[in-house]
Write a protein that binds this DNA or RNA. Structure first.
Length: 258
DNA sequence: ATGGCGCCACATTGGCGA
């Protein structure tokens, strides 16, 4: 089962690239972030014609998440229960017996912004909820844009990023709290090329210079991690005309031992 | 080096992303 996560930075603009991605990579499920459109504008027809069903939670201008899947999505839930939030950042569904949790985690803006404590509180709520979810759904994958580079090796120039969001100790502690639930970073289950990133600034020719961060992740619960056969970043989508600033991340799950 | 690029909206500039 091939799982992907992609921050498309506007589904309206990126729909042709998404359809190309579905046709050429043939994922079983894709978690989208930053769809940036309301539910009445979701491009269901094109996605259905590509052979995928979709569940989604959107809003105008900002945020917005969706799960596309070849098989149907069951038990859909939106948001983090008990955490009141207008921002559409979380959607979860069960696909082929696997609980997919699609997240667009807050950016935080800067360490002295009001959005930074919101980010930390949001992660605390996510972690508390997932602790409970994992008892209900032992086969669980947490996919999306985490807006956290877990380690210095996930940053093109760690010295230049000191004091910034995405790399702070408090944010990395939140990432580790997710690992402490028993989730594993699928990317690190395998030997990987150095300086593999998933996001590059549009400016400064950052992609060509590989000035990026690895902030998009697929975390897997134990049964899924044990059967994971690959986890990669699909850089090709970032090379296209008018790309998203994020590349898709992809993990493949083999047969799951019962 | 605090610029830049891209997307969005009560748009022709400002907010936001990362």
């Amino acid at each position: 089962m091939k799982l992907a996560a992609w921050n498309v930075n506007s589904l309206k603009v990126r729909l042709p690239q998404l359809l190309d991605f579905l046709a050429t990579r043939a994922p079983d499920a894709v978690c989208l972030q930053e769809t940036k459109l309301t539910d009445d504008n979701f491009p269901l027809a094109g996605i259905a014609a590509a052979g995928y069903s979709a569940v989604f939670a959107g809003q105008k201008t900002y945020n917005g998440v969706a799960i596309l899947s070849r098989a149907g999505a069951l038990d859909v839930s939106v948001g983090i229960p008990g955490f009141a939030d207008e921002q559409k950042r979380v959607i979860a569904a069960t696909v082929e017996g696997i609980r997919l949790v699609c997240v667009y985690c807050p950016n935080g803006q800067s360490l002295d912004s009001d959005k930074y404590p919101y980010k930390l509180a949001w992660f605390d709520a996510l972690t508390a909820w997932l602790k409970d979810e994992l008892t209900r759904y032992p086969k669980l994958a947490l996919l999306g844009d985490y807006n956290i580079a877990p380690e210095d090796r996930d940053v093109h120039d760690p010295a230049a990023w000191v004091g910034s969001v995405l790399v702070s100790d408090a944010e990395r502690a939140r990432f580790h709290a997710l690992l402490d639930l028993g989730l594993q970073d699928s990317f690190r289950l395998f030997e990987q090329p150095e300086k593999t990133f998933s996001w590059w600034d549009y400016r400064m020719m950052a992609f060509r210079r590989n000035m990026g961060l690895r902030i998009d992740h697929i975390l897997l619960s134990t049964p899924l991690a044990q059967s994971c056969v690959s986890s990669t970043v699909d850089r090709e989508m970032r090379k296209l005309e008018r790309p998203s600033d994020h590349a898709p991340v992809v993990a493949e799950i083999g047969l799951i031992a019962q």
